[in-house]
Simulated assay, not measured.
Amino acid sequence: MSFEVGQKVAGKVTGITHFGAFVSLPDNKTGLIHISEISDSYIKDINTVLTVGQEVEVKVLTIAADGKISLSLRQANEQAKPETTGRPKPAFNKENDRNYNKQPQSDQAPRFNKSSAAPSRSSYTPNQNNSPKKEGDFDSLMSGFLKDSEDRLSSLRRNTEGKRGGRGGRRS
């Protein structure tokens, strides 16, 4: 029997390790269920979910060139479950939401004080000389950006070289 990716196969758990469980498949093949493919929830110890000798139905995820077969117990069970028939999540409706247009209470202080805020991004100008923004093509904008960034990098290097003891730094 040759296996195909996506196929469901019955097998028997032959070994359990800290990273997964080995499953014996038909035709004397062996596959591995990685710990992440055993259950949807977190599993600290695989022995709490699987036992050696347990019959399981698994889905073939991948078949490597060297013959290693990757299996999933989680995906095999996921497709077998019927769709959940719980209540659908209600859509947002601003007419029915009581807090939609509600103003904050006057006794509650606002959490963000605009006067003490840092300048917004819109007030940032990349040129240090604050010259008016020039309209131009992409190349001129790029060359301006590169010049500005080189100026900033050189000033940073100048300021940090003395502190790290680099070229000609202070010696004590």
Rank of each mutant, 00 (worst) to 15 (best):
F3K: 01
F3A: 06
E4S: 12
E4R: 14
V5C: 08
Q7M: 14
Q7H: 12
K8R: 13
G11R: 07
V13S: 00
V13W: 00
V13F: 03
V13T: 02
T14D: 05
T17E: 07
H18K: 12
F19L: 06
G20C: 06
F22Y: 15
L25W: 01
L25I: 00
P26N: 04
P26Q: 03
P26I: 02
D27I: 00
K29H: 12
T30W: 01
T30G: 03
G31L: 04
G31E: 07
G31H: 02
L32A: 04
S36K: 11
E37T: 00
S39Y: 00
Y42R: 11
I43K: 04
K44V: 10
D45L: 06
D45K: 13
I46W: 04
N47H: 12
T48N: 14
T48S: 11
V49W: 11
V52M: 01
G53A: 06
Q54M: 14
Q54D: 12
E55T: 14
K59P: 03
K59L: 15
V60G: 05
V60D: 07
L61H: 03
I63P: 01
I63C: 02
A64R: 05
A65D: 00
K68S: 06
I69A: 06
L71S: 02
L71K: 01
S72Q: 04
R74P: 07
Q75P: 08
A76R: 11
E78L: 14
E78A: 11
Q79S: 14
Q79E: 15
Q79V: 15
A80I: 10
K81D: 03
K81G: 02
P82V: 04
P82D: 06
E83F: 09
E83I: 13
E83H: 10
A91T: 09
F92H: 07
N93A: 07
N93T: 05
K94N: 13
N99K: 09
Y100Q: 08
N101P: 02
N101I: 00
K102Y: 07
P104K: 12
P104V: 12
Q105G: 13
N113S: 10
N113P: 01
K114E: 13
S116A: 11
A117Y: 03
A118M: 05
S123Q: 13
Y124V: 10
T125P: 05
N127R: 14
N127V: 08
N127C: 08
N130M: 15
P132Q: 07
K134A: 15
K134Q: 15
K134Y: 10
E135A: 10
S140W: 00
L141Q: 14
L141H: 15
G144W: 01
L146M: 09
L146N: 07
L146D: 10
L146Y: 06
L146A: 11
K147Y: 06
D148I: 15
S154D: 02
S155V: 02
S155T: 05
L156G: 03
R157M: 06
R157A: 09
R158H: 10
N159Y: 01
K163F: 01
R164M: 11
R164S: 09
G166C: 13
G166D: 15
G166K: 15
G168D: 08
G168E: 07
R171H: 13
R171C: 05
S172E: 12
